[in-house]
Every structure is written in C-alpha cells, then in structure tokens.
C-alpha cells in the first residue's frame, strides 16, 4: 500500500531524513519510535503534504501512485489521514461544519453521493459514542478551548468518520491520561481492517499495550535504524536508544 524508498528530506539547510525506506502492507499496523529530533514527525508530515520540507531524493508510492506529487487535499481524498500531534484551534469554523465538509469532499472524489444532514448526524453520533464525546462538541469551534485530551479524541473522531485507507498518527498518545488513552486506543482499534494500514509515531511503549503493532521501527539519525516486532518496543523501554545509535554507527 505504502512504499517509502530512500527518502531524503530537508527543512531549510537542515537534512532531517537521510534515506528512509519503509514498506507498509494493507491491514498492517506499524509503530515508529525513536529519540527526540530523529525525524518521526517530519516523516508523517511529509507523507500528509505539509509545506516547508524539501524532498531531495527518494520516492513515496501510495497505492501505486506517486504520493509526493499530490496536494495535501488530494492525498486526503485518496484516503490518507494525519492525526495531528498538535491539532489546530480554528474559532469560527465549527466542528460539525468541518467534519461534514471533509466527508463530502472525500465522497465526491470517490464518486459517491454527498451525505445529507440526517445521515451525517446519525453517523457522527455513532462515532462520538465510540469516542465517548459529548454532542455539544459539534457546535463548538474546531478544537476551540478543547483540553489536550479532547483535541486528541477529536482527531480520532475525524478519522473514524472519514474512514481513511492509510492513517498516520503523530504522537496521538502524548498528553493523555490512562482513561483517555484507552478510549483513543479503542477508537483506533475499531478502525483496524484488512484493507487499511496504520502508521503511528510514538515516544512510549505504553500505547503499544493497547494498539498492538505488526512492526516496530526505530528512527535514528534520519533513517530506520532497526526494525522488529513489539518485543523491540519493550527492549527500548528497558535499554533506551543509545545502543541502537551505536549499532547503526
């Protein structure tokens, strides 16, 4: 589904990714871990189309297409979804409006009829229940005045409504207490399907107790330094990252 080959990315003068190669098959869940500043967030942001990064070498193929040639909104309509590490507050645009606009943009692109107000509300209510969110969220500004945990829940709610093919989660677990983490993990797990892939960036092994990954990668020095299964995450928890950096050097 997703093939990243030898990806080099720089931001200004700084080289951040120095040859990332990563292949993700449908139905798989991949976790990307690594020390601060190793380029984890950069990788998922580049995949979602964030401006300000320059791809200097390598390629990214998504469902057989050159992902990097698409605008961010085209990627979204093709089924790529990024759950932001810091979801943006947009007072004046309400949550329901954004969700419905996004859903209809994607449906239109797929050649499906747009949903009407009733269908939309029924769908969102069901997903909000899953995320244990109060309906009053819908009429509030996008993320306006939300707590850190509410913002993360809202990201997963959007993901549940938009049903992406490739979900990218950027530190969705950070800043969550244990109850909120369980709710968010539940939401993500409910979206696991044989035709959907999930790539999640995380600092902590604890997320992986709730969302079991097929593969765990360690990103260090701008490239994948080590790949393993979930036991690698436990080892990292015990030993830290230094041994991997030394191994890679």
């Amino acid at each position: 589904m997703l093939r990243i080959d030898n990806l080099h990315v720089r931001a200004g003068e700084k080289e951040i990714l120095t040859g990332v190669t990563l292949h993700v098959a449908p139905g798989e869940v991949h976790a990307i871990m690594g020390p601060n500043g190793s380029g984890k967030s950069t990788l998922v942001q580049v995949l979602a189309g964030r401006e300000g990064y320059e791809v200097t070498a390598g390629s990214v193929t998504y469902q057989g297409r050159d992902l990097l040639a698409l605008a961010p909104e085209e990627r979204a309509r093709e089924g790529v979804f990024l759950a932001f590490q810091y979801p943006v507050e947009i007072p004046g645009v309400n949550n329901a409006y954004l969700l419905k606009a996004a859903l209809n943009a994607i449906r239109k692109h797929r050649g499906e009829p747009e949903v009407d107000a009733f269908e939309f509300l029924a769908l969102v209510r069901e997903k909000m229940k899953l995320m244990q969110m109060d309906e009053s969220f819908l009429s509030r500004g996008v993320n306006e005045g939300f707590s850190g945990g509410e913002k993360k829940r809202n990201e997963i709610l959007q993901m549940a409504v938009l049903e992406p093919t490739l979900a990218l989660l950027d530190e969705t677990d950070s800043g969550l207490d244990i109850d909120a983490l369980r709710v968010v993990a539940n939401g993500v797990n409910s979206l696991r399907r044989p035709d959907r892939a999930i790539v999640m960036v995380t600092h902590y092994q604890r997320l992986l107790d709730y969302i079991e990954p097929d593969k765990v990668h360690v990103l260090a020095g701008g490239r994948i330094a080590k790949t393993g299964d979930k036991s690698l995450a436990l080892e990292l928890e015990k030993r830290g990252y230094d041994w991997i950096k030394q191994e890679a050097a």
């Binding site: 964030r50 401006e51 909104e73 979204a76 979804f81 947009i90 004046g92 645009v93 606009a101 943009a105």
Partner: peptide, 26 residues
C-alpha cells in the same frame, strides 16, 4: 490552520475562504 483543513480534504481555495470568514466571525 490552512494545512490542517487541506489535510482533511478541503481545497486550498476553500480553506482560505473558511479561515477568512472565521476571522471575521469574531
């Protein structure tokens, strides 16, 4: 904010319009 809206499938032109209206909404 522009990137956030576009990453949800909203075109750049629409995202700009949304943000301008949101600004005036205050």
């Amino acid at each position: 904010a522009l990137f956030y809206l576009r990453s949800r499938g909203i075109s750049e032109a629409d995202a700009r319009v949304l943000l301008i209206h949101a600004f005036a909404h205050a």
